[in-house]
Simulated scan of single mutants.
Amino acid sequence: MTVTRRTLTRADLTPLSRAALGRTPATVTRIRGGSKKGVYRLAFEDGTTAVAYVWSPDEDLWDAGPGDPRDPFSHASGLTLFTAAADRLAAAGVRTPRLLHADPTHTHLPADAALVEDLPGGTLEDLLDGDLPAVPKAAALERMAALLDTLHACTGPRFGKVAVVDNGGSSYGGSCAETVVERALSDLDELTAREPRVAAVHTRLTDWTRALAAQVRPRTERPALIHGELGGDHVRVTADGDLALIDIEGLMYFDVEWEHVFLRLRFGRHYDALRTEGLDEDRLRLYRLAMHLSLVAGPLRLLDVGDFHDPEFMRGIAEHNLGRVLTLLENAS
């Protein structure tokens, strides 16, 4: 099934805006980016703005349906996950756009919706690419490193999505590493049917994944609070240079190595400013392979079901990560 987005209009979003702020927006504009929810900027006559999040099946390009939150890697979408994550980050002292109004009862739209503070200054990715010259890169990276220290210093009693663990629940699987391995093997099986280059080395990749997993020692430390997809595009830069996390629905307690593998992939040459001591090298090796596999399988899956605005970009992600998987395999042989 191919999902085609219908852009919501000013008339669609006015009831939510009036409930939250008592005001009618002058204009409504879709913000490009998210693939799991609709994101809209509401502008008012006095020049102020707010952002609406809409978790509608019509806005979700993955066509995945509700995920099982007890699976840490299940589809991270919905108001419940968002509000739980926002509450946990606020308690941790990590900034996110302030929640102005939540509508879980579908009173104003036929879907979960929320209105949040707009932080229109751009993203950390924009800044590092040179598009926000007023903010020094070194200072922003120092703030990002401090944000990570604050985030990762928070721990949970069990691994899993914040919405599950903070409500006393538990996740499937015996450990973070077991969950990662299960997901990696599932991605491998899926890719074998899609991609001949994976099919040709499926047995070798499966054996290598299991061999890497066997080297990971059990961990006694409590799992850390991690964002899960923390690229520079998921960090907003405020007017005063402060940083705020967005797209937070995947917030979970997990091995911090999972976060650092993603950080290294997304921040590239800037990652050295975010590097930390004491990471488990065996976990990093396993999680790096699993992450690359996920970044092949996920984009190909999205292209099958969605109308993502830049399919060539998504194909490029899949191709790049497939190349990394095959290179890592050859270097391990």
Rank of each mutant, 00 (worst) to 15 (best):
M291C: 14
F262C: 04
Y271K: 12
L300A: 00
G323W: 09
S294G: 14
P299S: 13
T276W: 04
L295M: 10
H270D: 09
P299E: 07
A318R: 00
H270C: 15
T327L: 10
I317V: 12
D280T: 04
V296S: 13
E281V: 00
L289E: 11
D280A: 04
L289A: 08
E277H: 13
D255G: 12
V256W: 04
G316T: 04
R288F: 14
R315E: 00
L295S: 09
V256N: 09
L286H: 08
A273V: 10
V305N: 08
G250S: 14
T276P: 03
L326V: 04
G268L: 01
L328S: 12
W258D: 00
R315A: 02
G298C: 12
V296R: 13
G323P: 15
E277W: 02
D304C: 06
W258S: 02
L284K: 03
Y271A: 15
T276V: 08
L265F: 03
M252G: 08
D310P: 10
L300G: 03
G323R: 13
E319Q: 02
I317P: 09
F254C: 00
A290I: 07
L302S: 04
L302K: 01
L289G: 06
R264P: 08
R301P: 05
M291I: 10
L265A: 02
L328I: 14
R324T: 06
A318V: 03
L286S: 12
T327F: 15
D304S: 09
G278H: 10
H309C: 08
V256R: 14
